[in-house]
């Protein structure tokens, strides 16, 4: 298509084509970036609002909104990749195939020109990719973390309010729930010894689901100091992991035995990978 090298071994059409293609590519990516930024500027406050107003304990409206927005960002990324493949990479290959031999001076000169074109286009694409990644982390971080500590403290208070309010279904005697339960459990009546079944509230059940995340929130500063260490200090990680499990155990004491077995597995694997 561009194999029109004249007698002076020049190909002005190819030079012009590279120039305009590069220009179009840059303009195309700029437009996508501008659209992406515009979308994010408008979307972030809306995303935060949906997160705040979402009463679902799993914040599913927020999750789906975020996923839709990330889908649009990915759609732009794919669009750029397709154009890159069809209009930059394929063009390069065709153009290169049309060049005179590499040992001729025109051959080497035009290969250099093509190389410059290629680097300019790919570098520009890398800048675009950086902006995509930035946009993604902006959306992901927009709502901030769920305040699990407040939710947990509310559940503790709620439990204190109800723990003395139950009576035996057999004899009517008062039953005090001995500690916060997270799943259905049998409770023995202190008067007639009958086995009652206690079903915790939805909120109390959620404490079990969120316990690890809450423990991670409480110890996030320790993980950050490990991540900030340079070179990475494995002792800081071990310290973080131990403290995270301690917090986890404090939140759900019924799970200490199981949690500790899980901890053993994690610390063993970590030690094998970070010896000594």
């Amino acid at each position: 298509m561009f194999n029109l090298f004249n007698k002076k071994n020049e190909n002005l059409a190819l030079i012009e084509e590279m120039r305009t293609r590069q220009e179009r590519w840059f303009v195309f990516l700029e437009k996508l970036e501008a659209r992406m930024e515009e979308m994010n500027t408008a979307a972030v406050p809306e995303l935060q609002k949906v997160f705040r107003q979402d009463t679902d304990p799993y914040k599913r409206a927020h999750i789906h909104m975020l996923s839709g927005l990330l889908g649009q960002i990915n759609q732009m990324r794919n669009k750029a990749n397709e154009v890159k493949e069809e209009n930059i990479v394929c063009f390069m290959q065709e153009a290169e195939a049309s060049l005179p031999s590499i040992i001729s001076s025109a051959g080497s000169e035009y290969r250099r020109k093509l190389y410059t074109f290629r680097m300019a286009c790919l570098d520009r694409h890398n800048v675009f990719e950086d902006k995509i990644n930035h946009a993604i982390s902006l959306l992901q971080g927009a709502a901030g973390e769920q305040d699990l500590e407040s939710a947990y403290q509310e559940e503790l208070a709620a439990f204190e309010r109800i723990r003395d309010k139950f009576s035996c279904k057999q004899c009517g005697g008062n039953i005090t729930i001995p500690r916060m339960f997270f799943i259905d459990t049998y409770i023995t009546c202190p008067f007639c010894q009958s086995q009652n079944t206690f079903s915790p509230s939805t909120g109390a059940r959620m404490v079990l689901h969120q316990a690890r995340s809450l423990a991670e929130q409480r110890t996030a500063h320790l993980l950050r100091s490990y991540e900030a260490s340079n070179p990475k200090n494995p002792d800081l990680y071990r310290h973080y992991l131990r403290c995270m499990f301690d917090e986890w155990n404090k939140i759900v004491p019924d799970m200490v035995v199981e949690n500790e077995k899980f901890y053993e597995r994690l610390i063993n694997e970590y030690n094998i990978n970070h010896h000594p």
Binding site: V50, D56, R60, L69, I162, F198, S199, T202
Partner: peptide
Amino acid sequence: YLEQLKNKVETQENYGGEITNEEARMDI
């Protein structure tokens, strides 16, 4: 786009249904 996305995520049914807040109770 944002309008319809917000509307969609706030009104669509979540898989498994809404989580209703049930109180603790005792049974035998």
